[in-house]
Nucleic acid binder design. Structure first.
Lengths: 214, 214
DNA sequence: CGTGCCGTTGACAGGCGTCAAGTACAGTGG
DNA sequence: CCACTGTACTTGACGCCTGTCAACGGCACG
């Protein structure tokens, strides 16, 4: 029997029949709930668990000594996070809105890791994709890439609500909230998107957005 | 018996006794040699192998449609790269100078992956570290972070030669060669480093460099 | 209806990219 | 041995993009 793991970008990766018990193990666990802004794990804490989002959303970030924050990834329903084998967390994971997660213990042997490997590889891939965005794209291009990503992760919907405030978008894209706001306005004025309130996004010209992500 | 895997940042990660045969498998393989600039695998090619640098160095990069290039990682002796489970490569791996690599076939089942898991996790961690650098640091800070990384990866040496030309450094840090050059000059004028020819780096004040990486 | 948070818009300055010229050095051929 | 050439790197001038600082608007909540 094949099982599949839902990864950060929503792609399904096949896990071979030698098969992990990870999926079953996590299902047996209770769901922990967190309020908006509550930390699921914090930088410096002892690690050793893997988490899966049940509902809501999670931001994983690191903060530099001077206070600058970089959000490494957003995680939505089905996504795994917290995967690492160091003894302490380098990043912090926080709930965005009311959020539920299930978790399993990561034992030192590789047994429990088997089912998580596709999720690790997918996280790695996402991190690499993001390096391109923040390393080599302009502000408007970054925002366009972000909207495409959010659209794809919400089932390729052309109309969706952002889970997170502007400051999270900014810290994800390596920009300021003002620049994010201005970029959204530019895309709106070009007729590529429409804005519905503070968080509502409607993609009018998906192709144009994709072309901006070159 | 525990085995250990040399990862991209030079840290050793312990692999549990349930143990991989990966190490032994790759040792049995012959070393392939590449000249400077020769590609080891290319974006779009079918994937399915994992590589380990024997000597020389490797750059892994992606290119946007408009020609902008982002180097995702540098790999030196002992480092694994090419780890993914998609059927085609999204990135290109090229030799920097005369380079030798050994490789193994990645079968679809998880067996061969076991020994590579620490390398995958380490690559993931490196990618996250790099997100911070290119997302939230200034030009001088990025170059400082780069020098610290290179120093650490060459056995914490305070005097070493860069394997790669300026354009590679620039494309790794999300800068231009001119800005990299100017940043190096600034660090030199502050007395933090000394430059010996085009590639020689001497770190005079390691602590000062680290403080710049905040 | 006030208050506070979130987001937008504007003015301005500075950092970095772009374009261009100049320097250092290795390799080549006479 | 030396001139020539090409590549890599540095330095300078200038402009634009984006960060910073500030004011304003919209909306939820008490």
């Amino acid at each position: 029997m094949h099982t599949s793991v839902m990864t950060s970008s929503g792609r399904r990766l096949i896990v071979a029949p030698t098969g992990p018990r990870t999926q079953g193990e996590v299902e047996a666990r209770p769901t922990s709930s967190f309020v908006d802004g509550e930390s699921i794990y914090h930088s410096g804490e002892r690690a050793g668990r893997a988490y899966r989002v049940e509902f809501g959303a999670v931001r994983v970030y690191r903060v530099l000594a001077n206070g600058r924050r970089q959000i490494l990834a957003f995680h939505f329903g089905g996504n795994w996070f917290g995967l690492q084998n160091e003894d302490r967390h380098r990043s912090t994971a926080e709930a965005i809105g009311i959020t539920g997660v299930k978790s399993i213990t990561l034992t030192e042997d590789l047994h429990t890791w088997q089912g998580l490997l596709p999720a690790v590889l997918e996280s790695f891939l996402s991190a690499q994709e993001h390096q391109l965005v923040i390393g080599r794209q302009s502000a408007v291009e970054r925002v366009a890439a972000f909207l495409v990503e959010m659209s794809d992760r919400s089932g390729h919907s052309h109309r969706f609500e952002l889970f997170m405030p502007r400051v999270d978008v900014a810290d994800y894209l390596g920009l300021t909230i003002e620049t994010v706001s201005r970029s959204l306005t530019k895309l709106k004025n070009k007729g590529v998107i429409r804005l519905h309130g503070a968080r509502g996004i409607e993609i009018v010209d998906y192709r144009a957005l994709q072309n901006l992500c070159l």
